[in-house]
Design a protein around this nucleic acid. Structure first.
Lengths: 208, 208, 208, 208
DNA sequence: TATGAATGAGATTTCATTCAT
DNA sequence: CATGAATGAAATCTCATTCAT
C-alpha cells in the first residue's frame, strides 16, 4: 500500500545502489557520491528523496527492520505471558519462532546483513544493543517466575545476559555462513535447542 | 628487547595518547591530530616513529597481541598433540588455559579492548577472523581423532566452527563486563565448562 | 485591484508562510522548501505565482511598502513646497506625520520588520538607503531655502545627512521596542521634537 | 610580542585576503575557497592556521576588537566613578574619549568596518548588542546619581537606551562616511556635543 | 629528532532554480 | 494550477600524509 507512494524509478535505483554500497563499506564509509553516481544521479537527489544519509539508510533497511521487530515482539509478548515450565517443554515453539525469524531474515538478507554488520555511525548503530536489552528483560521475567517455584534458587542475571548475546550471535553467525533458508534452519535449530538446555542449566544459581 | 630501540620519551607519550584515542573512537575514527596534540607533538612525529597510522596502531597493540598469541599458540600446540579423550576429562586444563588467557588479557586490558572492539579499518581488523580460523583447524584435528574411534560418527564442522565463535565471544563479553581478573574467572570458567560439554555433545554428527 | 488576479488560496498561504519565515530568518537565510512545505505546496508553486524568491519577497512586503511610501511621498511633496520657517513652527504637523507613519507601520508590522531587518540579499536590501537619499534631497532643499535668508550661513549637508539616519533609526528602534501604536507614539513624538530642534541647531554652519 | 608567534607568510596572506573578502561580502557570504584561492593556498590551510571559519574571522578582527574594547572599558570605568554633574561640564573629556575612539577605529578601519557591518553569522554577530547593553548599564548608573539630586525626577530608561543606539550609530555613520581621522573628528565632536545635550534634556522625566 | 606548513581528495549538506507533465 | 523530480554549484570541513628544514 504505502509502497505505492514514493516509488519513483530513481528512488528505487538509489535504494538499490545504496544497498550495494552499504553492504560493501558499511554506513560510515559509504560514499553518497558513489551511490548517486552509480544511480546516474547527483547527491542532491538523496536529499530530495530521503532528507539525509541516515534517511537513505532508513530507506534501505527500514521496512525489513520493522518486519523483523514485528516477529520478535509478537514472540516476546507471548513469552512473558507463558509459563516458564511450559516454555521449556514446548520445543516445537522454538522451532516455530526460529522458522519465522529465518523467514524474515532470508527474505531480507541484504538488509539484515547491513543492519547487523554495517550500521555503525547510523541511527541504527545501537539496534543490537537495544535488542539485547529487550531480550534481557523478557528472559529475566521468565527466569524469575521459574525461580519462584525453585526453593533456594535465584536468577543468575549475568549468565542470562550472556546467553542473550550468544543467541543473537548465533543469528549473526547464521547470516554470515548459511546461504539459504534450509541450511539456515539446519544450523539454527540445534543451536536453539542447545541454548534452551543451557538456559535451564545456567539461568539459576544457588541463593547466596 | 626490541623495546630498547626507539624508546624515546616522545614515542612512549605517543603510544599512551594513541591508546586513549583508539580506545575511545576506534582506529578508523581516531584523529592523528588529536593524538599528537595531546602528546604535545605534531603529526609528523607519528610518521617518524611509526611510519603511518597503522604503524602507530601496531605500536599500541602489537606487543600485547604477541603475548596473547604466545599463550594461545602454546596451548594449541599442546592440544593437537594430546588425545581428545584425555582432553575432555582434564577439566583442570581448561581452567589453567583460561587462567593464562585472563592473565594476559587483564594485564593488557586497554590493548585487548582496542584490538577486539576498535580495530576496524586497521591492519588487524581481521585478527579475530584469523584467530577463529586457527582455532577451527585445531579443533577439527582434535575432533577427527575423536571421531576416528567412534564408529558411524563424523565431525560436524559447522557446529565446531560456531563453537569457536561462541568461545571467542565469551572472552569479548568478559572483557566488556568483568572489571578484574577475579570476577573474570568467575564468569569465564563456568562458561568454558559449558562449552566443553557442548563440544562433546555437538562436535560429532551421525555419518549420513 | 491587482489583487483580484492571482489571488488563489495557495498564493495567500504562500505569502502567509513566507512572512513567518522571512520574519524569522531574513530573506537570505529563508528556505523556499520550508515555506512551501509549511504551505502544503512545493517549491514550483513559488515560481508559478511569483517568478522567483525575490518575487515572493515582493508579494510579502510589496503592498505594505507601497502604502508606506505613499505616506512619505505625500509628506515630502508638501514639505518641499512649504516654507522652512513655517515648517519649524508647525510642531503639530510633525506629530500628524508621525501619527500617519505609526499608523501605516503598525498596521503592517510584520512586513515592516521584514523590510527593515530582514531584506539583506533581496532586491529591497537598499530600500533604506534609497529612503535616506530621498529624505536627504528634501531636507537639503528645505535647508537651502532657510539658508537663503540667513546671511553668512550655508547648509551643513553632512549633519543633515546624519540627522536623516537618526530619524530613520528612531523608527527602526520604535518598531523593535514598542509593541503598539500608543506606546510607539509615546516614544516617537518626543524623539521627533528633539530631532526638529537638532535640525534647527545643526542644519546650518558658518559660511567659510 | 605575541605577534611574533604564528606570523608565517601564508598566515598573513590568508588574513589579508580574508579581510578583503569579509569586507566585500560579510562573514556569512564570504567564501573560504575564494579567500584561500586568492592567497594561493587550499582551504585546509585555514583549518591548519585558524581552526575554522570563525577562527579566521577572529584572526582578522580579533586584535583590533580588543584594542577598541580596551579604550571603551577604560572610559566606562572612569565614568561610573565620576560624578554626573562633573561629567556634563567636562566637554573636553568627551572630545578626549572621541579622539581615542577615532584613533583606534581609523587605525583599524577595515577591521572595524567588518566588525560593524559584516559580522552577521560569526561569533561576533552580537557584538554591538553587547556593547549597547554595556553602555546602557553605565549610563543608567550615571543618570541615577544625577536623578538622586533632582527632586521629582526619575531616569527615563527608554530614552536613555535610545540615546545609546544613536551614539553607536553615529560611529557607524562616521566610519561609513568619513575617510580619515581629521574629518571623522570634525563629524563626531559636534555630534557628541549634541548627544550630551540631549542626554541632559531627556535622560530624566517627571516622577509619575 | 621532530616540526610546521600545506596538500588534495574526500566527505555531507543546502538551495534556488528548472521543467516536463 | 501545481507537482515532483532533479540539477549543479556551492558551501564548510576533515584528515592522513608529505617534506623541507
Amino acid at each position: 500500500m504505502t509502497d505505492k507512494i514514493n516509488n519513483s524509478e530513481s528512488r528505487e535505483k538509489l535504494i538499490e545502489c545504496a544497498k550495494r554500497e552499504f553492504l560493501e563499506k558499511g554506513f560510515a564509509k559509504a560514499s553518497l557520491r558513489k551511490i548517486t553516481g552509480d544511480a546516474g544521479l547527483t547527491t542532491g537527489a538523496v536529499y530530495f528523496f530521503f532528507g539525509d544519509k541516515n534517511g537513505l539508510f532508513d530507506g534501505v533497511v527500514g521496512s525489513a527492520l520493522q518486519k523483523l521487530m514485528n516477529v520478535i515482539e509478537t514472540h516476546f509478548t507471548q513469552d512473558t505471558e507463558e509459563d516458564f515450565l511450559a516454555y521449556k517443554q514446548q520445543y516445537g515453539d522454538h522451532d516455530e519462532f526460529a522458522k519465522q525469524l529465518v523467514d524474515v531474515i532470508y527474505d531480507n538478507l541484504d538488509e539484515m546483513t547491513i543492519l547487523l554488520k554495517g550500521s555503525a555511525g547510523s541511527k541504527y548503530e545501537h539496534f543490537i544493543d537495544a535488542l539485547i536489552d529487550r531480550m534481557d528483560k523478557v528472559y529475566i521475567k521468565m527466569a524469575e517466575r521459574f525461580a519462584a517455584v525453585m526453593p533456594g534458587k535465584r536468577v543468575n542475571k549475568k549468565m542470562l545476559h550472556w546467553l542473550c548475546h550468544v543467541q543473537i550471535n548465533a543469528f549473526l553467525h547464521m547470516i554470515e555462513h548459511e546461504p539459504d533458508k534450509e541450511s539456515a534452519l539446519g544450523f539454527i535449530c540445534p543451536v536453539m535447542d542447545m541454548l534452551v538446555k543451557a538456559w535451564i542449566d545456567f539461568a539459576l544459581e544457588d541463593d547466596k
